[in-house]
Nucleic acid binder design. Structure first.
Length: 426
RNA sequence: GGAGAGAUGGCCGAGUGGUCGAAGGCGCUGGACUGGAAUUCCAGUAACAUCCUCACAGGUGUUCCAGGGUUCGAAUCCCUGUCUCUCCGCCA
């Protein structure tokens, strides 16, 4: 949610910023609703004040044993007038909320302007893509040759966009997750958290998935109103919902490993092959809560911490600053990490690190106490994958493949693999 | 799954229709005392929305788990829901 005060005081500046995303803000509609809001809110407040004053005088009169009948007569019509004003106010409020919850975040000035991902800007690059003497296989061929990746079985059990891993490959997947968690908790100072995988609508509204992107989520049948999490960002960031955090506790850095569930509505035909785009995948997520003045420094730190995973795994990657046309709904600035996949001969997204500024915090009333003002103010939230485990597995398979179809185990993962050096067909 | 109890300010806790935004305590902040501190004493100490204002200050409204209802008036009465605790059952 955008700062309502800014939206009111300078809607044209907001509109200009959102226009960079290709989002058209109807300033005229907004200001007329705003005018109506003010009118009805003030009116309802006045009527309520009148009511309170009357009720008090009735109480006093009664305490003094006076006849209260004439006083009661005075307020006869107040009730219905008040109800009418309240109804109008509620109507206007609901309309305004519908609009404001649907507004994307304003972009940081450093975000490159462009229509789509072709306008993304490469910030830096690490590692050299390996030269193969043969045409490298992709992870699907490698996994099936090993006999440890089975899409047919997954299709039978669940359907498309699921996978089954077995044996050392399943262990490699788990090893990646353990390695990432240990790195972030042990060396980067993150607090490990275990959180629910089913969340309520309020949490999803807080982080911005609802109300606009319900189609991307899996909802649970029945009365519970719960949804499967599309990312750990949702439960972890909502830890701060409806809380006031003292300044000396910030920044807070959480890491969590969770499965993620996405309906992938609207991505039909995209990445249908292999494990790149699944309904269920594992991810290690980094979440920062920060003072507003520190959030861009935190954003750099978070991104570097995610990059460190790829460096330790010796996977070539590049860092992209997402353009205004490609960036997510709630983000003010996003870096994507793209890992080199020899099987596709392309860099593919493996992590997305975003600064949401106060966008999520305002939706979820996540605040910190600013010592300068003594008042609770929205804090800044950030998150990034550190990194997606499914895609990391894909990257390891493709980058560490040998001509015979076996997979060398990356050095840092060996302790997690019981000392296994190479994954072969059993 | 069955039975019962409960949810009040940062925390504990009183309040069962009117002057209650809410006693008292703790904590915190400021002041007095002191060479300095502890003790003691005095004072202050919620959030949200909104109006006015350059700002400070101030006005109004809302909030005693949430939503609805009764009433001129609700922390207090009624209904629904959520959560927590205790006991029984069942289980990882």
């Amino acid at each position: 949610m955008l700062d309502p005060k800014l939206l009111r005081s300078d809607p044209d500046a907001v509109a200009a910023n959102l226009a960079k995303r290709g989002f058209k803000l109807d300033v005229a509609q907004l200001s007329s609703l705003e005018e109506a809001r003010k009118k009805w809110q003030v009116r309802a407040d006045e009527l309520r004040n009148e009511k309170n004053v009357h009720a008090k005088s009735v109480g006093k009169a009664k305490a003094q044993g006076q006849d209260i009948a004439p006083l009661l007569k005075q307020v006869e019509t107040l009730g219905s007038e008040l109800a009418a004003a309240e109804a109008e106010f509620a109507k206007v409020q609901a309309e305004l909320e519908k609009i404001t919850l649907g507004l994307p975040n304003m972009l940081h000035e450093s975000v490159p302007v462009g229509a789509d991902e072709t306008a993304n800007v490469e910030i830096r690059r690490w590692g050299e893509p390996r030269k193969f003497a043969y045409k490298p296989l992709d992870h699907v061929e490698l996994g099936e040759k090993l006999g440890q990746m089975d899409f047919a079985a997954a299709g039978k059990i669940s359907g498309a966009r699921f996978s089954v891993l077995t044996g050392p490959l399943a262990r490699l997947h788990r090893a990646l997750i353990q390695f990432m968690l240990d790195l972030h908790t042990g060396e980067h100072g993150y607090r490990e958290t275990y959180v629910p995988y089913l969340v309520n609508a309020q949490s999803l509204t807080g982080t911005g998935q609802l109300p606009k992107f319900e189609a991307d989520l899996f909802g649970i049948k029945g009365e519970s109103g719960l949804y499967l999490i599309p990312t750990a960002e949702v439960p972890v960031t909502n830890l701060a919902r409806d809380t006031i955090i003292e300044a000396n506790e910030l920044p807070i850095r959480y890491v969590a490993h969770t499965p993620c569930f996405r309906s992938e509505a609207g991505s039909y035909g995209k990445d249908t092959r292999g494990m790149i785009r699944q309904h269920q995948f594992e991810k290690v997520e980094l979440v920062h809560l920060s003072k507003p003045q520190d959030s861009y420094a935190e954003h750099e730190t978070l991104t570097r911490n995610a990059e460190e995973v790829l460096k330790r795994l010796n996977l070539p990657y590049r860092v992209m600053a997402l353009s205004s046309g490609d960036i997510g709904f709630g983000s003010a600035k996003t870096y994507d990490l793209e890992v080199w996949l020899p099987g596709q001969e392309a860099y593919r997204e493996i992590s997305s690190c975003s600064n949401f500024e106060a966008f999520q915090a305002r939706r979820m009333q996540a605040r910190w106490r600013n010592p300068e003002t003594g008042k609770p103010e929205p804090l800044h939230t950030l998150n990034g994958s550190g990194v997606a485990a499914g895609r990391a597995l894909v990257a390891v398979l493709e980058n560490y493949q040998e001509p015979d179809g076996s997979i060398k185990v990356p050095e840092v993962l060996k302790p997690y693999m019981g000392g296994l050096d190479v994954i072969r067909r059993p």
